Amino acid sequence: MTDISRVETARACWGDTMPDYVEVLAQECDRSTQSAVAKRLNRSATLVSNVLRNKYTGDMAAVEDVVRGVFMGRSVTCPALGSISTAACRDWRAKGKSFSNENSERVRMFKACRNCPLAKKEAA
């Protein structure tokens, strides 16, 4: 019995509407494992599976940002850190929703993210 690749699964589930970042996600899963890919994305293997099968009902824009940042090299200019991946930006914005003084970088990023145009756009 032959295993079906993640790319074939995604194509079967998405058809002609499959976004390029979903194909990249599937290719990465074929190169390693779904669990390893999920870990690199800082997301669950279930989320990855649901995205590949076109069954994810959550924030697909967030999935796109993370996949593009981790596997496709998309970056943004952060007012505090300079050029960072969209995945790192999204993670800092999530952390920045609540204040924590656990370390100086977290405090600095809390302040920076609150004033960042991307965070303001997201809040609108």
Results as ranks from 00 to 15, higher is better:
M1Q: 13
M1G: 15
I4Q: 12
I4V: 15
I4P: 08
V7E: 07
V7F: 06
T9E: 11
C13H: 12
W14Y: 09
W14I: 06
W14K: 09
G15D: 08
M18Q: 05
P19I: 03
Y21M: 02
Y21N: 07
V22K: 00
V22C: 01
E23A: 08
E23K: 12
L25I: 09
Q27E: 15
Q27C: 05
E28K: 03
C29D: 03
C29A: 14
D30F: 07
D30N: 08
D30W: 02
S32K: 13
S32A: 13
S32D: 10
T33V: 08
Q34F: 07
S35W: 13
S35G: 15
V37C: 02
V37H: 01
V37G: 00
V37F: 05
A38G: 07
A38E: 02
R40A: 06
L41P: 00
L41T: 01
R43M: 13
R43C: 13
A45P: 04
A45Y: 05
A45L: 03
A45E: 09
T46L: 08
V48Q: 00
S49V: 04
S49D: 10
N50A: 06
N50I: 01
R53L: 08
R53H: 05
N54W: 02
K55C: 03
T57I: 11
T57K: 11
G58R: 06
D59H: 09
A62T: 11
A62M: 12
V63A: 06
E64N: 04
D65I: 02
V66F: 01
V67L: 02
R68Y: 01
G69D: 01
V70N: 01
V70Q: 00
F71L: 06
F71K: 04
M72H: 04
G73T: 10
R74K: 15
R74W: 14
T77I: 14
P79L: 04
P79Q: 07
A80K: 10
L81Y: 04
G82C: 05
G82W: 09
I84L: 13
I84A: 11
S85D: 06
T86Q: 10
A87F: 08
A87N: 10
A87D: 13
A88I: 13
A88Q: 13
W92C: 00
W92Y: 14
R93G: 03
R93I: 08
R93S: 05
K95M: 15
K95E: 13
K95L: 15
K95A: 11
K95P: 00
K97Q: 15
S98T: 12
F99P: 01
S100N: 10
S100G: 07
N101R: 03
N101C: 10
N101M: 06
S104F: 04
R106I: 00
V107T: 01
R108M: 09
R108E: 06
M109T: 04
M109H: 07
K111F: 13
K111Y: 11
A112R: 08
C113Q: 03
N115D: 14
C116G: 10
C116M: 07
P117I: 07
P117E: 15
L118R: 14
A119I: 10
K120T: 15
K120L: 15
K121H: 14
E122H: 14
A123G: 06
A123L: 10
A124Q: 14
A124S: 14
